[in-house]
């Protein structure tokens, strides 16, 4: 029987990819951010997941605005990165897990989520950077991928409540998957930031802290605001926290234990955050 080993959450700012490429991990600007990842690396080395189910948002690489799915599940044998417009070095490709993808798709539709399915899907920095951060020396990613894209770009966006429910439906699908994979769920993006408008540069540590404090113990607390109010509190791109909420749902309905947290302001225009959680309540030995 498959096991959900835990959840890893991280920001996915494009500038991180550039910093990795240039080897700036020890640079004073970057160090407090990169120092948040060795504990995640150690946790992954210990838990050894072989599949990642990743909730993220596309930034105009795979989806254009001619067709914009609210929820899209990848079902491809392979996922490639491509030029996102800046001519940066390409990220490594991922091996897919079509059988598990279709299992998730079948279960989600059975549970009345009207998703889009993608047998071809390019993946951008929002998917690759989280892996670059925790497998810095890998020649190939050590796990297969099931990507789930959430529209955080073009309003109306799905509500936080709906994203949490989507995640919980994915959890249900993972629990009834007959394989013996070890699965990590991931949510990428955020936390508070705003790139556009006169309020560009907006960051809200108090709201981010509310989200991080509640995500493990009471994720429903993050679903009480409308998307509009969440944008007010977290910024136009801070709404990417929807990916975190969905990933938390995929960890399961019960309580989870926070194992690690790092929060740093700023990376580029963003309040950058990293968290690791395991399902259940850990009892001290």
């Amino acid at each position: 029987m498959a096991e959900i080993v835990g959840a890893y959450f991280t920001s996915h700012v494009p500038a991180i990819g550039n910093a990795i490429h240039k080897g700036l991990q020890q640079d004073p600007y970057w160090k407090p951010f990169f120092d948040g990842y060795p504990p995640v690396q150690q946790w992954l080395a210990k838990t050894k997941p072989d599949v990642a189910v990743v909730f993220y948002n596309d930034h105009g690489l795979n989806f254009f605005l001619d067709k914009m799915p609210t929820f899209a599940v990848g079902a491809a044998p392979q996922y490639d990165n491509a030029d996102e417009g800046w001519g940066l070095p390409l990220f490594k490709s991922f091996e897919g897990h079509p059988a598990l993808s279709w299992h998730i798709i079948n279960n989600l539709v059975e549970d009345e989520f009207d998703i889009t399915t993608c047998q071809k899907m390019l993946v951008d920095h929002a998917l690759s950077i989280p892996f670059e951060l925790v497998y810095p020396d890998a020649d190939a990613w050590p796990m297969k991928l099931v990507p789930i894209a959430i529209n955080t770009v073009q309003h109306p966006l799905p509500s936080a409540k709906r994203c949490l429910a989507l995640g919980r439906a994915v959890n249900k699908a993972l629990r009834n998957w007959a394989g013996d994979e070890r699965i990590v769920v991931m949510g990428t993006g955020g936390l508070s930031h705003q790139l556009d408008g006169e309020r560009a540069g907006f960051i809200n540590a108090a709201y981010d802290t509310f989200c991080m404090d509640n995500l493990s113990v009471d994720p429903d607390a993050l679903t009480r605001d409308s998307v509009h109010e969440m944008v007010r509190k977290s910024g136009t791109q801070g709404i990417e926290v929807l990916n975190w909420i969905a990933a938390r749902g995929a960890l399961g309905e019960g309580p989870a234990t926070e194992l690690h947290r790092n929060y740093h302001i700023p990376i580029s225009n963003t309040a950058a955050a990293t968290m690791v959680m395991e399902p259940g309540v850990l009892v001290p030995a």
Partner: peptide, 18 residues
Amino acid sequence: TTPTERPEPIPGTHLFDG
């Protein structure tokens, strides 16, 4: 808010809507 009601605008923020 009801569908006919627009939420209070967010200063300096332009939501990318339909």
